[in-house]
């Protein structure tokens, strides 16, 4: 045990530059991954929030015949995607506008005629709230001649959808590139250690050291580097998060379990990089 811990520190002293580089690249890999992950996570939350309220609103032409309206409502209520449907008259619309926009109620006070159209509000079942389904329902309703206009979350739901996928993609690509660099840097550090200790390792093999005995300190060292990198990433991430939180919007952060998982991921990255390099070097006995 004394041997293992003593040796684990050896590389830090042996090649401080490469060691720092290894730690920094792991930190960057995990930082980029976690930033984009955080974006993904928050978009996901917003989307889930929006989805709750996903509805299609069909605005009706003024003076539409009530029998036509109820025919539409009966037909649409029968769509498999539709959860509920409600009619909002011109008067109700104005009342709601006054209530919701109380700050601007003056705008609506002295209106001679009611400018708001009557509408039918359609809520969708939870399985049918994605962009494609919403779009499909909207298209079908738009075919009614007396439907003047149709509104649904389309635009920004799709944009958020896209952003979410983009952030996942960027996170994986940029994080992946850094992870590869980290892999190479850790491998290079171990190469240097192994070359600088060629004689010692030859002696170890000669006196009967097992492969795991020789490898263990180097794997532990890789693990420590990974954990250090992850901790640095966490500090950077917390900093980024609090900046955004202050300036922009309220965001959700990773759960403690996810943070612990991320730190372990860093450690695993470092350990695996070490093992891969060592396998090549300690193949012969």
């Amino acid at each position: 045990m004394a041997y293992t811990s003593r040796e684990a520190l050896f590389a830090f002293r042996r090649s401080p530059l490469l060691t720092s580089l290894s730690i920094a690249t792991i930190a960057f890999a995990l930082y980029t991954l976690s930033v984009f992950g955080l974006v993904w996570r928050n978009i996901d939350r917003v989307l889930a929030d929006v989805e709750e309220r996903v509805e299609v609103i069909a605005y009706l032409v003024d003076g539409t015949d009530p029998t036509e309206t109820s025919a539409l409502m009966r037909e649409v209520a029968a769509y498999p995607e539709v959860d509920s449907i409600a009619y909002l008259s011109k008067e109700d619309a104005l009342a709601r506008a006054r209530a919701e926009l109380s700050d601007y109620s003056a705008l609506y006070e002295d209106l001679e005629s009611n400018p708001l159209p009557a509408s039918v509000e359609i809520a969708l079942k939870s399985g049918y709230r994605d962009a494609a389904d919403v779009d499909d329902v909207a298209t079908r309703i738009a075919r009614f001649a007396f439907v003047e206009d149709i509104k649904y979350g389309e635009d920004w739901v799709q944009k958020l959808d896209f952003l979410q996928n983009l952030s996942l993609f960027l996170g994986l690509v940029v994080g992946g590139v850094f992870a590869v660099i980290a892999f190479v840097a850790i491998g290079a550090t171990i190469n240097i250690v192994l070359i600088s200790r060629e004689d010692e390792i030859a002696i170890m093999k000669m006196v009967g050291a097992t492969r795991s005995f020789i490898a263990r300190p180097l794997v532990i060292e890789g693990f420590i580097k990974g954990v250090l990198g992850a901790v640095i990433a966490l500090v950077l991430l917390t900093f980024t998060y609090s900046l955004l939180e202050q300036r922009v919007v309220s965001l959700s952060f990773y759960s403690p379990l996810q943070v612990a998982g991320g730190i372990l991921l860093g450690g695993a990255l470092g350990a695996v990089a070490s093992i891969v390099t060592l396998r090549r070097h300690l193949a012969t006995w």
Binding site: V207, G208, R211
Partner: peptide, 14 residues
């Protein structure tokens, strides 16, 4: 097997 060699080496003085 390769992993048995360390045990052998411990029985040899070189």
């Amino acid at each position: 097997k390769t992993r048995e060699i360390p045990a052998l080496r411990r029985r040899l003085g070189i």
